[in-house]
């Protein structure tokens, strides 16, 4: 069940938007499609929704082959990046749209709309028009509208992209809670790795129309499959010929076999986090992320002589990183 995408390819002229993509989205899971813009994540989402027809490959939703099935018959809920509110309809009519199309009884529609508006905290806004709502409210309205028809899967395109930072943080937590409550298979697109890590159970990293890696947030961070994922999913610091997470570098005050000699260039105090910029012998510049307490313990100062040692085995072997 859930969503199964197999060997999907899509070209726009010479531009390869999706290159033989295969993906499994478990029933009831919350998955993020993460990647840089132009990486193919939105195209993949639209292919799943039926808004875009793939050149090759198949899409199976909830055990049924949906390839070639028009969007309106796929039973998907889709939330657009800019919410696509029906501007000439009230919030109530927006949410009721799918139910009216399905010719449900008026009493049933009223009940369901009331329920949904409560769910998205828009009870008092039923008779407003989209233009009278804030960005966050519009987004929740779009979500209620998509959920009204009880979709088999919920697809969201950059759901937080157009919101300001504080609203975005709130909505992330809220979306996760909502997902736990509704338990509907959910896929959302984002270019923000922090957002993906915070909200999703499973992250799919897409780049140049191909999947780089699929895994839980922790897996991607600790065991990136390649250089791209390593760089995209978190901060990196170079040491020798390898890439490490900057908090995986230990600063030593005494030399030790395997440790590289370095000079402290700059110590940046960012609250709990302290960022130490160093120049390794041979001229390579890198940085170490450490805690306030640890920095205090080492009594780090600009120009100080230190030794750097990877805290544990590199997350990415040098060959793979090359």
């Amino acid at each position: 069940m859930g969503i199964v995408v197999e060997n999907v390819g899509k070209k726009y002229g010479d531009f390869v938007a999706l290159d033989d993509v295969s993906l499994n989205v478990r029933d009831g899971s919350l998955t993020a499609l993460l990647g840089p813009s132009g990486g193919g994540k939105s195209t993949l989402l639209r292919v799943i929704a039926g808004l875009e027809e793939p050149d090759t490959g198949t899409v199976v939703i909830d055990g049924e082959d949906a390839t070639g099935v028009p969007a309106r018959k796929r039973g998907v809920g889709f939330v657009f990046q800019h919410y696509a509110p029906f501007k000439h309809m009230t919030v109530r009519d927006n949410v009721a749209f799918g139910l009216k199309i399905r010719k449900r009884e008026k009493a049933e529609i009223d009940e369901r709309v009331r329920e949904l508006l409560e769910l998205v905290h828009l009870e008092g806004f039923a008779h407003r028009y989209p233009s009278q709502l804030s960005g966050g409210q519009r987004q929740r309205m779009a979500l209620a509208r998509a959920l009204a028809v009880k979709p088999k899967v919920l697809l969201l395109d950059e759901p937080f992209g157009a919101l300001d930072a504080t609203v975005r943080k709130e909505l992330r937590a809220w979306l996760r809670r909502l997902h736990d409550e509704m338990n509907v298979t959910t896929v959302f697109v984002t270019h923000d790795q922090e957002e993906a890590m915070e909200v999703a159970e499973q992250i799919v990293v897409l780049n140049h129309g191909a999947i780089e890696q699929v895994g839980a947030p922790q897996d991607l961070y600790d065991r990136p499959a390649n250089d791209f994922v390593m760089h995209f999913i978190g901060p990196v610091a170079p040491l020798g010929k390898r890439w490490l997470r900057p908090h995986d570098l230990d600063i030593l005050l005494e030399p030790e076999p395997g440790a590289s000699e370095a000079t402290v260039q700059h110590v940046l105090h960012l609250g709990f986090e302290v960022r130490v910029e160093v120049k390794v012998e041979g001229g390579e510049e890198t940085w170490v992320q450490t805690t306030r307490d640890r920095a205090r313990e080492l009594e780090l100062a600009d120009g100080q002589q230190v030794w750097l040692r990877p805290a544990h085995d590199p997350v990415l072997e040098p060959e793979a990183a090359a």
Binding site: A71, R72, R74, F78, H82, A84, F97, G98
Partner: peptide, 25 residues
């Protein structure tokens, strides 16, 4: 075309989309 696509994902046929979404817009 976003409003029309939204209507489509909500189950509206092309004709329903035209009369309920496009024409009012």
């Amino acid at each position: 075309t976003e409003q029309e696509q939204a209507a489509e994902t909500l189950g509206a046929s092309p004709l329903q989309t035209f009369f309920r979404i496009t024409l009012p817009a």
